[in-house]
Structure formats: structure tokens, C-alpha cells
Design a protein around this nucleic acid. Structure first.
Lengths: 337, 337
DNA sequence: CTGAAAGCGCTTACAG
DNA sequence: CTGAAAGCGCTTACAG
């Protein structure tokens, strides 16, 4: 079943059929209806290769996952693929190490494969700032905030991370914790980075309560991985005998922290309370269960993918939206008030 | 830069250039060398759309992941993508729920997109047995054993799961455990299913040691997820006061089991020792650290992908290979000998 | 608003 | 072993 068959069946030329398929305006209502009906009847699917030969665009949306072994991003990826599938869209996927520049990778992919759109899962804003202007395809950043970069082909959908950070810290403070460690991310450079937002939200709560926080000592940078969190904390916990709580800026960081607390001879939550961020399923099965700030992954994915598919069809300006999160209290926090 | 440019630069026709690119035998050594040199010089990449328009094959390899929220399969997926990338190959990915028929999905995808090859990550042998004959593209099953199905376009690479199951149970038995529960998978139907292999390996060890095992009572079916394992064991643990060890047929199952043991008022490993299977990174961060049978993911991926790419180029018969695994002892097992 | 035709970049019988 | 040419299924100026 090709465009030729549809043309024959409808009595119009292949040119007109093509115009109908591509929503070209200069087609009579009559022709459009008749042709659409036949396309439907015959369950005709245009050949993507032929289409993109002309347009020299690839048929797939390319998803770029920044970071490996990241359970949270993997769970988003699953949802994205399943959501795209509903619209018969193909998801091509590329995993980029945290140390690599994901935008440069995308630039290279655009030359090699020319995907019709990019979805970035996570990412370093500095790379977007310096390199994204080279990207032409409609793109969306999920779990990141690109509004202030001002690219007209880059939308972004993220959790309201400042507010999420606030909620996490409020939960600790409300339980009487005044001496906390915050762990995760690298926040010197980009204030819009998700980890900075979460950190700043948390700090704003401390400030409101007049709780002192020595940033150099009490904020610990590390990758969003169990391993890095664990190693950094194994170094620091021995010299931090007074802290009563840890806010891990991602669940993986919090899980690494739980293990480090244990290995440094203290107990969660009796000696140290812990809260994470993301809401990965695993937080229900740790011992103790991990309190966390649950991101609304379904909403992030639905809005992000909808926006991208729309902009692939009908160019319009990028949109930026924040989705609210909710802290969830579990066994890993005790009240010391 | 198109095939035309290469033809012009080399002095040969585009037909000959095309033959060189596609490794067609009927080309003189002289022409081949000259053309390859120019291709190299100019860094020419054939246009995949044009190529596949003719061959009407999609440019991507489609990876079908059987199961969502499966950390182990996600980690394999990451490696597969990175490995394919090295060869400039595109990975299109589809996640299929455990309850769905992954082979029927593939059949549909083959009609819609005609990928040049399929990689199945995990899967139910019964679906392969009944439906795979409809698949034409070269395929490989990773983490599954398809040798006995005898399809000539389906290779398979798996861990030697019988041996892996043996190692896990030997570790328990050597530590004095004689009253164990084995949890995970659905083993009534397919003896070649990975879970059956692991189970049978474990049972063979018990038999050698003359340790009794009431299969109906001591083997518990469940999905390879934390949640299902947790729920099944919360039901069963109260009535199993005598057991001293649990073998989870996947790490996720073992993690769910750890939590269930805890919630039923017992302690790991003091009351109940636990060993898992797969070797996901998380086993290093649980409290206590989880003993497991580590699968050699790098090897599975390297061999599986190499075989598939080779067979896409040069049809040959499917290969089936088992890769050895190694049990790793950690804190979740104590000796009661 | 519509059709006829050129052309996208490649592969592959066919003829030599 | 090689070239000329048809054709894969589509899009899009061009002419009407």
C-alpha cells in the first residue's frame, strides 16, 4: 500500500494525496475528506524512509539520557518510550556519561541522523548555554529548566525544584533537625541547575527559621550516584558528629548516604534522619523506608512529549513549565523536637 | 557528500561505489581500494533513508526490553546502546510490560518500521515458541536461551543459569542452611526459562546433599520485581518459621525479600540469610549488603551485539552461547553450621 | 485547487 | 568486473 494506491483509489493524483497527508492548506475540503477516508479505510502508513529521503529527516525522536546507572532517569525513559509508542512514534535512545557533553553529542547525532526531535533527560545547563545554538531540531529538556537560556526550539519541563527542596527541608526542620548535611550535585556554576534549585529551596527554609548553615562545610558536592555519595560521606561523616539529618538531592544519593551512615557506625533514623529526592520505587523497600520528594514523572513526560510532537508538526515557540512535587514522609526520619 | 561525489572523485560509476560499500564480491581489488580510500578521506556516510528506501529496511536496531522498572535490564540496555554507538548504529527501544507478548509486539514493529534487527532483553520462551516464526529480521535474545527453539534467525546469549543457580545454593548449603525458600519467576511451563534454569541448578545441589525440598511449599512464584516478591513473602513468611535462608532468583526479588523479612519481624542475616541473582550495583548499598550471583553483562552484550551486527551483514546461522557467572559473598549470609 | 514531472540518494538486474 | 538505467515512495516547485 503506497501513496500511488491511495491516489488510484481516490481518483486524485499522488501530489494531492501527499498534500493531504502533510496538512498542506491548498487542498479542497472535498479532496481532503475523500482522501482521508480512503487512507483510514486502507490503514495506509506512509513510508518513513521515502518521506525522510526527501526531507532528509530521520523518522525517530532521539532521547538523550544524561547519566548511566540512574534509576530515576531510566524510569522516565520507560515512560517516554511508552508514551511515544501510543502516537506510533519511534524512540531512538542514547546514553551519555555524566562527564560527557550531551549537547555536543546531540549536535553530532543531528549531522549523522537528523532526528526530527530531541528529548534530553537531565543535563548540564552550561553545555546548553554554550552549545545548544547549533541544534536545529525541536527539542525538549525534561527534568531541567531552560527558560532563561531563551532558545526558541528548546522547551523545558521540570519539577518545581526550589519548592521541592523547601518541602524536604521543612520536613526535617519540623521534626526538630537543625544540624543537617545536604549532599549532591555540583552547584558552583549554574544557579538554574536542578541541584542548585533544590539546594536553594532548602537553604531558604533554614534561613526563615534562623538556622545557621555553613555552606562550605554542610553542603557536599557529588554525582547523583550511590557510589559517589557513599564515598564522599565515608570521608566526611567521621568529622561530622553533631549532624542529625541528611538531605540527599537525589534518591540515589540518599541511598548511598544510608549505607555510609551505617558503615560509620551510626543508625538511620535513630542517629541520623535522611530524606531523598525523586521518588524512585526503591525508596519503599530500603530498611528503613526512605522519605523523599516525589516528582510527578507521568506529568513531566506527558507534557514534555506532547509539546515536542506538537512543535515537530507546527512550529511555535518553546514553552517552559514547572510541575509541583510532594514530600513523602517515611521511616527514615524521626522527630527529635 | 553523496555516492555521486564519491563516484566522480574515484572515477568509477555510482554502481561500483555502491557495490564496494555493500561488500559485494564482484568488484576488482583495485576499484575497492581506491574507492574505500576516498570514502575514508571524505568521511562519507551513506544516507540511511535512501539506502533503506530501496531495501525498505529501517536504519535502526530495535531493542525490546521485556519488563519495566527492571534495573538489571536497564543496565544491560545502557551497555547495548553504548556498544551499538561505537559502530555508529542507532538503537530504537521499546519497553514491553511483563504481562504483554513481546514477540507479537515485535511482529507489529516489523510491519510498521521494518528494523534491520531485533535485540530482545529477557522474554518469555513460550511467546517465542508460538510466534517468533513470523519474524524475519535477524534477532538475538540476551538473557534467555533459545537454542532449543531452533529458529535460524534467533541467536541467544545467556548466563549459564543452571550453574549460577548451583553456585547460589552451594553458598547457602556450605554455610549450613538446609531449610530454604526459593522465590521468583513462573516455572511451571518452560524448563528453558532462565528462572527454571536457576531453580533447577539450585535443586540439583540440594539433591546432592540429600537435603529435602518440598517444591510446592518452598518454591514461590512471583514476578521479577521488588513489589511482587515483597507481597508474596509477607503472606508466606509468617507460616515459614523454620526457614533460615532465601534464594531470590533475581536481585530485585531478593531486595523485596529483605524488606519482607524485616517487616515480618525477623532480621537479615541473623534470622534469615539471603542471596540474589544478577549483580545489580545496588547490592553493594543495601543494609546488609546483598550476596548475589553476578552475571557478566559486558560479555553478554559484546557477544550478542557482535553476533547480530554480523548476521545483519552476512546471513549465517544463529549461534547460542552461555557465559559463566560467579557467586559473590556479602553480608547477607551467615554461617549456621 | 490540481496534475505532471523532476528529483531526493541509493540498489540492482541487465547487458556487455 | 563495470556502467547505464530503472526504480524504491515520497515531496514540491512549476504550470495551469
Amino acid at each position: 500500500m503506497t501513496i500511488k494506491d491511495i491516489a488510484r483509489l481516490s481518483g486524485y493524483s499522488i501530489g494531492t494525496v501527499s498534500r493531504v497527508i502533510n496538512r498542506h492548506p491548498d487542498v479542497s475540503e472535498e479532496a481532503r475528506e475523500k482522501i482521508l477516508k480512503i487512507i483510514e479505510q486502507e490503514n495506509y502508513q506512509p513510508n518513513a524512509n521515502a518521506k525522510h529521503l526527501k526531507q532528509s529527516r530521520n523518522t525517530a525522536v532521539t532521547v538523550i539520557v544524561k547519566g548511566t546507572r540512574n534509576i530515576f532517569l531510566n524510569s522516565i525513559l520507560e515512560k517516554i518510550q511508552q508514551y511515544l509508542r501510543k502516537y506510533q512514534e519511534e524512540a531512538s535512545v542514547v546514553f551519555v556519561e555524566e562527564s560527557e557533553n550531551e549537547v555536543r553529542q546531540a549536535i553530532q547525532l543531528e549531522t549523522e541522523r537528523n532526528p526530527k526531535g530531541f528529548i534530553f533527560l537531565g543535563g548540564a545547563l552550561e553545555h546548553f548555554r554554550t552549545d545548544f545554538h547549533m541544534i536545529k531540531a525541536p527539542s525538549v529538556l525534561i527534568s531541567g529548566w531552560a527558560k532563561d537560556l531563551g532558545f526558541d526550539n528548546l522547551s523545558s519541563f521540570s519539577t518545581d525544584d526550589f519548592e521541592g527542596g523547601r518541602q524536604a527541608m521543612e520536613m526535617l526542620v519540623n521534626n526538630g533537625h537543625r544540624n543537617v548535611l545536604i549532599v549532591g550535585g555540583f552547584n558552583s556554576k549554574e544557579p538554574e541547575q536542578v541541584s542548585s534549585q533544590r539546594l536553594n529551596g532548602a537553604l531558604s527554609v533554614l534561613k526563615e527559621h534562623d538556622i545557621p548553615f555553613e555552606r562550605d562545610r554542610q553542603y557536599i558536592e557529588c554525582r547523583f550516584s550511590m557510589q559517589d555519595s557513599y564515598e564522599k560521606l565515608m570521608d566526611r561523616l567521621p568529622v561530622e558528629q553533631d549532624i542529625t539529618a541528611i538531605f540527599g538531592l537525589s534518591d540515589l544519593v540518599a541511598v548511598g548516604a544510608m549505607r555510609a551512615v551505617h558503615d560509620s557506625g551510626r543508625t538511620v533514623p535513630d542517629d541520623i534522619s535522611i530524606i531523598g529526592y525523586d521518588g524512585i520505587g526503591y525508596t519503599d523497600y530500603t530498611v528503613p523506608r526512605l522519605s523523599t520528594v516525589r516528582q510527578n514523572v507521568d506529568e513531566l513526560v506527558a507534557q514534555g512529549v506532547d509539546d515536542l510532537l506538537y512543535r515537530i508538526q507546527y512550529p511555535r515557540e518553546a514553552v517552559h513549565r514547572q510541575i509541583s512535587a510532594a514530600a513523602v514522609s517515611k521511616e527514615s526520619i524521626i522527630s527529635i523536637a
